[in-house]
Design a protein around this nucleic acid. Structure first.
Length: 456
RNA sequence: GUCCCCAUCGUCUAGCCCGGUUAGGACGUCUCCCUUUCACGGAGAUAACCGGGGUUCGAAUCCCCGUGGGGACGCCA
């Protein structure tokens, strides 16, 4: 069998979203699984709505997610240019073939594709007008995911606009022929277009590629498929929020596909080895950001510390909090080491670590009220302040021993000092162990914070 | 309105093709354990075969009809 050639064919008319990314991913996975070629083709025939910014967003997002293309813009390939706006000559050439075969006619300045069969008129309820229908044999689609699907394409359709620009159905098929695409993997919303496309392939006398229509991703809340306007729909947003791309990809793999066993966190190589079209689900899936968050956490937890630090640094560089946090690289490193096992995603990091980087941190009034309600806690603070000058700050265990010794002398336990101390040095009731906080903040800052809190 | 696709816990899903399972896993939620907080982790709980017919000794699984959900019906892609 000849080599698999698949394409992802987005149009740069809006932000790159989850659904597009998943379509790209399934194409990419299939290409990698079969040792085939993954092609990126830009469908920018709609001059009104295209934008260079959106185009760059497609490139950036694909690369961020790790989906490199074998042929396409920026990388080239043996099949000419990969932006439809640059392929006009090819469309003219193919249009001539259709004209020569008598399969076109002009109406209202546009060029229409002519179906073969008897014509009759009927009133269309949806469009509230009389339309011309054609009696044609049903198109049979042997879909790789859905099985046999039968559809009747019974109306002629426009292939070249009155302004001379070819439309999607036409250029899509022409390019699939010209680029020798073997498998068309796309969203189920295109299933009803497929009969149009098959009619065109046949009119060109070209082999019809295999089709695989993948289920759609439904919005998290409310009815309907996810669109660019929906909450949480944009890839760019997850990138900005500091999600790990490998976690997002892993999550996307599992939306409509699974390894048929209980594995969820999977190396992409394992997904590639197992991925196949018949294994893709037929039903739509609802996007669940909570589960994505969990997946992200599992990846974060397993990241080598050096890698975590590298990525956390990059994340902070995009954040307002970064200016303060990155002043002292050694302190930043220590704080990140403490934070890694505690957070679910980078977006929690600035708030979670803020008090390490400034004395001007916020004390949560509700937390304060709750903790101080236990009474006589300022005495504990005073006791701690008294031993601070001689306390061994060299390690967590040394600090822990010192506090335990102090507590024991008063007939108390470590826990009696914990909450109020944490509140005094961090303003909150959650975070790394206070011994680690002592070590990282160091004696001077810890002392100042405890004193300040004790007199407040 | 017409055409097409789909249907297992709240969500993602395994099981369906090749009928016999205590219908499994994960997220979420709740409980307990671990514990110097918060997380992590561990143990448990919660919760599903859309409905109705049929075929069959037996149906989540096969067939039909409903219903529900989704999509398409542009000189958008």
């Amino acid at each position: 069998m000849s080599q698999v050639r698949v394409r992802f064919a987005p149009s740069p008319t809006g932000f790159f979203h989850i659904g597009s990314a998943r379509t790209a991913l399934f194409n990419w996975l299939y290409a990698r699984h079969t040792g085939g070629v993954f092609i990126l083709r830009i469908e920018d025939t709609d001059k009104e709505r295209n934008s260079e910014a959106f185009l760059n967003l497609i490139y950036d997002s694909l690369r961020w997610l790790g989906m490199n293309w074998d042929e396409g813009p920026q990388v080239g390939g043996a099949f000419g240019l990969y932006r439809q706006s640059e392929r006009g000559a090819i469309y003219t050439e193919y249009l001539e073939k259709l004209k020569a075969a008598g399969r076109t006619y002009e109406k209202e300045g546009a060029i229409w594709f002519k179906l073969i069969g008897d014509r009759y008129e009927v009133f269309d309820e949806h469009r509230k007008k009389t339309v011309t229908k054609v009696k044609v044999a049903p198109t049979v689609i042997e879909d790789q995911i859905r099985g046999r699907v039968e559809r009747v394409e019974d109306e002629d359709f426009v292939i070249v606009r009155s302004d001379g620009n070819p439309v999607f159905h036409f250029v899509n098929v022409v390019d699939d022929i010209a680029m020798k695409i073997t498998h068309v993997i796309r969203g189920e919303d295109h299933l009803s277009n497929t009969s149009k496309h098959v009619e065109l392939f046949k009119a060109f006398g070209a082999p019809v590629p295999a089709f695989a229509h993948i289920p759609l991703i439904l919005k998290q809340n409310g009815p309907g498929k996810m669109s660019k306007r929906d909450q949480g729909a944009l890839i760019e947003e997850y990138q900005k929020r500091g999600f790990l791309p490998e976690a997002l990809v892993n999550f996307l793999c599992l939306l409509g596909w699974n390894p048929k066993d209980d594995r969820e966190k999977m190396a992409i190589a394992d997904v590639i080895a197992l991925f196949d079209l018949p294994g893709v689900n037929q039903s739509n899936a609802r996007f669940d950001e909570k589960k994505l968050g969990h997946m992200n956490m599992t990846y974060l937890l397993e990241l080598p510390a050096s890698e975590f630090l590298k990525r956390a640094t990059a994340y902070f560089q995009t954040q307002p909090a970064g200016a303060l946090a990155l002043v002292n690289p050694e302190l930043f490193r220590e704080v990140m080491l403490l934070a890694q096992p505690k957070i679910k995603g980078f977006e929690e990091l600035p708030a979670y670590t803020a008090y390490f980087f400034t004395e001007d941190f916020v004390v949560d009034p509700k937390v304060k009220e709750k903790i101080m309600a236990k009474g006589e806690l300022k005495a504990r603070l005073a006791e701690l302040i008294a031993v601070l000058p001689t306390m061994d700050f060299s390690s967590d265990s040394a600090i822990e021993e010192a506090i335990k010794a102090l507590a024991a002398g008063k007939g108390l336990g470590f826990g009696d000092y914990q909450a109020v101390t944490r509140l005094a040095i961090s303003g909150t009731n959650a975070g790394p162990s206070i011994t680690s906080m002592f070590r990282v903040l160091e004696r001077e800052r810890v002392t100042a914070r405890l004193v300040r809190f004790a007199v407040s």
